[in-house]
Amino acid sequence: MKLRAVIERITYQNGENGYSILKARVKGYDDLVTLVGNMLDVTVGTVLIADGQWKVNRQYGSQFVVESYEEAMPATLFGLEKYLGSGLVKGIGPKFSKLIVTKFGMDSFDIIEKDSQRLGEVDGIGPKRIKKIHDSWMKQLDIKDVMVFLQGNGVSTAYAAKIYKAYGKESINKVKANPYCLADDIWGIGFKTADSIAAKMGYGKNDVRRCRSGILYTLNQLVNEGHVYAHRDQLVEAGVKLLETDKASIKSALDQMIAAEGLKTEDEAI
């Protein structure tokens, strides 16, 4: 189910994973609707197009559980003013929000993003505030772009928030270059999750980055079973089974890891 919601109030928000409880105005509902889910840096005034489902909480009643979302721009001058005055954009409060929207109308967002020096036409806004406003706006655009990219590649909103916290505006480049780095860097994302993301991005079964990550996953599984080392043939066979690939690809990745000292070897072990 899809809802278009205008955020009216933030009841709770976790800065680490983005988990939020929000009150929103939704067309067709007289009372504010409660939205729950991982929604990173969403503020009062934000317009969300949210996909999810309804559930009934015994204590809090009906809630809409957000599974994925994207931000939409406000469609009215009132919405623009409320959005800009919400605290989302550093350097703009309710006073300057009203002045900016009065001056630039529906072009306000474009002015901030593409021609921010024109903000100096508004009484009380000087060079320092212009820079603060523009920098804050661009950061929000980075977050939106990252969330759209990650959700488009099968990353849940919870993991997307963690990824942005770890990589910031470099998130898209990092994940494009090697989605398997997620298994190394992001707590809670293991090899299988990273592999699913990589598959959606078009990574082949024989890709060396996939083989490397699969080998490390296999070693970790052996450690969890109480082993302290693995034989080379053992790793190759396990890698072929796990990754459904050929021995040559696994052997090549293993040789590269040994050469780069990513794995320690001894004659009687690997």
Rank of each mutant, 00 (worst) to 15 (best):
D41V: 00
S86Y: 04
K27Y: 04
N153Y: 14
V47L: 12
W54L: 11
S86F: 08
M73C: 01
Y229L: 05
A177P: 00
G105E: 12
D195Q: 11
I100K: 14
Y60L: 13
A75W: 01
R58D: 12
E261S: 14
M1E: 12
D142R: 01
K82D: 02
S108F: 06
I130F: 07
I21K: 12
E121K: 05
A253S: 13
S68C: 07
K82L: 04
K27I: 01
V240W: 02
S156C: 05
D107P: 01
Y180T: 09
R232P: 04
Y19H: 10
K2D: 01
I92Y: 12
Y60P: 00
K98Y: 05
S68H: 04
E113C: 01
D41G: 00
A24Y: 08
M1N: 06
G120L: 13
D233K: 05
G105D: 09
A5I: 11
L141I: 15
V155R: 01
G87S: 09
L119G: 06
R129V: 15
S20A: 15
I100L: 11
T43N: 15
L242I: 05
F191N: 12
L88E: 07
A248N: 12
G105N: 08
A72L: 11
I7R: 09
K114Q: 12
T265F: 02
F104L: 03
D184V: 00
